[in-house]
Design a protein around this nucleic acid. Structure first.
Lengths: 144, 144
DNA sequence: CTAGGTGCAAAGTATTTGCAACGCT
DNA sequence: AGCGTTGCAAATACTTTGCACCTAG
């Protein structure tokens, strides 16, 4: 880890009010240098090279801590389990970052427009699914 | 189930080349009449009122069958497990419906524009996350 | 020193699978 | 009749938790 990264990490921890531990530094650096959307197992595999004694539980705890602190995001804020769309109309989702609730909004009401000309790697676009992330009315109240 | 629904379901099964069973009809009807984004457990609870002997495994199999056949969609096509965003730049996702791979596309490159005026229920929008659903180059080849 | 962090093992939840019996076509 | 479908129970995958020990501040 570079000096700059170490300092940045120290500052992040100060802001979040959490301890700077060796495990957290190594997980932080691993994530910083990984590409794509790694799973906890993949992070664990990488971190174990530098800390063979680290446990998967610590990796999970650390990742959640980073997500709560806003240091990293998770790829999908949706339910972790399988959910079925019962709404047959074209629609998008309002996802509350507070209570994790998901409600539907008609595609027309969102008035979304995407004008991608070329998508990387010859990707063929068929449909757009938009999550509007924010706070539902209830969670806005709770925070005020 | 109305006669119209029963006929519609029969046609769907014919098209998909699958058998019309009592369990599938009841799961189909349950989903048709449920709101929001039910989990397999919730569907199971509802279906059990009419078929007490049905198993949760059958509900899972039936839901997957419906999703593969395009009869219903799932809410999120993302990985079922926790994934971390390592890309700090504002970006959206290209999600391949064939191989389920997810790649990033810079927010600017997608040129997305949302102009929602009023969001239902006083929802406070903070950020938009767009999934472009389609086929990656590899999966386009496989299908040709 | 002590509050918070870690590692371990066990528990919890979500989902899938193997297989014998059963029912659609 | 034959093959796909079902129900059950066991297996697997993923994630969380309780607790004794350890460590940063």
């Amino acid at each position: 880890m570079t000096i700059a990264e170490a300092n940045e990490f120290r500052t992040l921890c100060d802001t979040a009010g959490i301890a700077v531990t060796h495990q957290r530094q190594v997980v932080f650096e691993a994530l910083r240098h990984m590409h794509g959307h790694p799973s906890p197992e993949e992070v664990y595999a990488r971190v174990r090279i530098r800390i063979p004694s680290i446990s998967l539980a610590t990796v999970y705890k650390t990742i959640h801590l980073f997500i709560e602190s806003g240091v990293f995001r998770e790829v999908s804020l949706h339910h972790g389990s399988l959910r079925v769309e019962t709404n047959a109309r074209p629609h998008h989702h309002l996802v509350c970052t507070g209570c994790k609730s998901i409600s539907d909004i008609d595609a027309e009401a969102l008035e979304i427009g995407a004008r991608a000309r070329k998508l990387p790697g010859g990707f063929l676009a068929q449909r757009y699914a938009v999550d509007v992330l924010g706070l539902c009315a209830e969670c806005q109240k709770s925070l005020s």
